Amino acid sequence: MSVFKAYHNSHDLFYREPFGAVTCGQEITFRLRTFSVEPIETCVLRLWATDHEIALSLHQTSEKSGVASAGESTPQPVENGMLFEANYKVPDIPGLIWYYFVIRAGSVTYYYGNNLKRLGGEGTLSKQEPPSYQITVHKQVFVPEWYKRGVMYQIFVDRFYNDHENGFSTYPRRNALLHANWSDLPIYIKDEEGRVTDWDFFGGTLGGVIKKLPYLKQLGISILYFNPIFDAPSNHKYDTADYQRIDPMYGDEDIFEQLIDTARQFGISIILDGVFSHTGSDSLYFNRYGNFPGVGAYQSADSPYFSWYKFKANHEEYESWWGVDTLPEVNEMNPSYRQFIFGLEDSVISKWLNLGVAGWRLDVADELPDEFIQELRQAIKTIRPKAVLIG
């Protein structure tokens, strides 16, 4: 009976080197092991680059299949195991490369490609064309040393450390549940339609982070990435109410500057979360509930913020992030919105970078227009060349 097995692992440097995304013009080495009682007639690497297909013949190497790389979960070998290899130089322009292997053993053609979850790593063998592995090709970019060699720690401020003796700041929000016990389980009060009406808070603050900086330094941390810290009604803060203001339950701008300065003394850089695909409905800009001075987009088409949002004809219904009506989506390519976020001298990006922020993490970066991200990155680099933008 004919027995055929094969193995490739895109997450193992022995089988694909380098790992992950590559720069334009870089060369990749591909390897495939085969285990067959039938002679291998052909072994081909089939690639798709931009708008054309490439077929590369893999050559057999001298190393036998019994020698496996560290940590490799190789199938049980049968006689006549062989290792095949090919090198490929990716295009000089950014894009995606797709690939799988085609092996002819005896009178049968086999395919080895990505697993059914399409997550890369160990693949699957079949007699039909399989899902392809993917490789991202990108332009060479400068990565500052402080980030490249840094150790990052993520902080969700409300649940990190409370530095108030009485347990909470003097700014309790409306419809807020304040936990007296730090070890309580989180709880949400919802209405009939499943909307959260009362958010719970544990009382973590930026002052608490400052007190823990020696501890973080002792851990070897050199970068702190914060979940959103701007004014917002919820505890998660992804429903921004005011991009220019620190949430009062976390502290104020003076405390934030103290955090930046103290962290710098410990050799720690700060990265903030940029939530730019939507705002909160209870915000300075949308103002659905009239809790802010001035006229918000929901209140009037004459609002300076009206053009930021995606209203329907009746001016009452609007597009929101994943259908959550407390998170109205913005039109990121709206000129006024872009100026506000990164275009003006006193833009959101400019204000916080000038206060000492070392970079930004983009929320739902995959949902933002490429042009918006490119212009945002350019604005960041103009202000602080060694700042980073991640997503």
Rank of each mutant, 00 (worst) to 15 (best):
I221M: 12
F35H: 11
G290K: 06
T23M: 10
S350G: 09
E53Q: 06
E122Q: 15
A105H: 05
D370S: 11
Y305C: 09
L125P: 07
D370Y: 11
W199D: 13
Y133A: 04
K381A: 03
D273M: 12
Y7D: 07
G251S: 11
L58T: 11
G267V: 03
I189N: 14
P369Q: 01
C43G: 04
S336M: 10
I210R: 04
I223T: 07
L344K: 15
S283D: 01
F226E: 12
E192K: 15
E53P: 06
Q258H: 15
E192M: 14
I255E: 06
Q299W: 00
P304D: 02
K237W: 04
V151F: 13
F226D: 13
S320M: 11
E319T: 04
S10L: 03
V3S: 15
S350C: 04
D184R: 14
F306C: 08
L327F: 07
I40R: 06
G359K: 11
L284R: 08
V78M: 12
N227V: 12
G113L: 13
P304V: 00
Y250S: 01
P328T: 09
V348Y: 08
K117Y: 03
F256L: 13
A176D: 09
G290S: 08
F84D: 05
S62I: 14
P186G: 05
E17S: 15
P369W: 00
S183C: 14
I246H: 12
Y133P: 07
I268Y: 04
Y289T: 06
Y133C: 02
V141H: 13
Q374R: 15
R118I: 10
L259H: 00
E316T: 14
P94M: 08
A176M: 13
Q258K: 15
F266Y: 08
A55G: 05
F266I: 01
H164T: 03
E375N: 15
W321A: 00
Q218C: 04
C43S: 08
D302G: 04
L178V: 08
L224I: 08
H278N: 09
I210Q: 13
L224W: 08
I155Y: 08
L219H: 06
D184I: 07
C24Y: 12
T205D: 07
P233N: 06
S269A: 14
P369Y: 06
P233R: 09
A263P: 11
Q339T: 06
Q218V: 11
D51L: 02
Y250M: 03
D12G: 14
N331H: 07
S281K: 00
L116F: 10
T34E: 09
D231R: 15
C24F: 11
F84S: 00
K237P: 03
S10T: 04
L185R: 14
L368R: 01
R377K: 13
